[in-house]
Design a protein around this nucleic acid. Sequence first.
DNA 1: ATGACGGTGTGGCACCGA
Length: 258
Amino acid sequence: MQIATWNVNSLSVRLPQVLDWLARQPVDVLCLQELKLTEDKFPFMELRSAGYEAVAFGQKTYNGVAILARTPLTALARNIPGFEDEQARVIAATVETPQGPLRVLNGYFVNGQAPGTDKFAYKMRWLQALHDWVRSELAAHPRLVLLGDFNVAPEDRDSYDPVGLADTIHHTREERAHFQALLGLGLTDAYRMFEQPEKSYSWWDYRMLGFQKNRGLRIDHILVSEALRGAVTACTIDRAPRKNPQPSDHAPVVLTMA
DNA sequence: ATGACGGTGTGGCACCGA
């Protein structure tokens, strides 16, 4: 089975590309971020016609997340329980698979703007709350994936300019420590389970020919629990949609499991 | 140092993203 994550930067604009991508990459589960729309505007019908049920947690203008699946989605959760948040950043659901239930936690992690700002402090609080929640989710659901737009480049090799961008947003010691803390719960960065091309990124700035020059960051991730790790057979970044007219600035990341 | 690109809103630019 395949499960993917894609920050679409406005689902209203990108829906045709999402449908086109699903037609060519009929993944079992697709997690979306940055819907930038409310649930009353979510394209449930169009996705159903394409063979996908969906659950969505939306917001006007900013944020918004959804899970699409070919099979029913149950045990829905919105945002991090117990963490007051005005922003729609997390949706979780359980998907039935031939191997048993799979818990899917889809997050649009806080950007954080710059160290020292209120937004960065919010990012730190948010990451701590996420960590505590993921620990309890893992205890209840051994077969679990945590995926989405993490807004963290975990290592220097995940950035096109680790020296010039050292200690800037996505690259700080604090953000990376939070990423490592998630791995410390028993999660594995599926992309790094395999040999990958050098300079592999999942996001490129729209400006200054960022994609053409491959000036990007790997900030979209799929983490798998210990119970799933042995079943993972591949993890890839699909750069093709970034070449579309009117692309999202992010590319989908795809996990394949036996 | 700044802006560059793209999306959204009730707009003629500002804000946000990463």
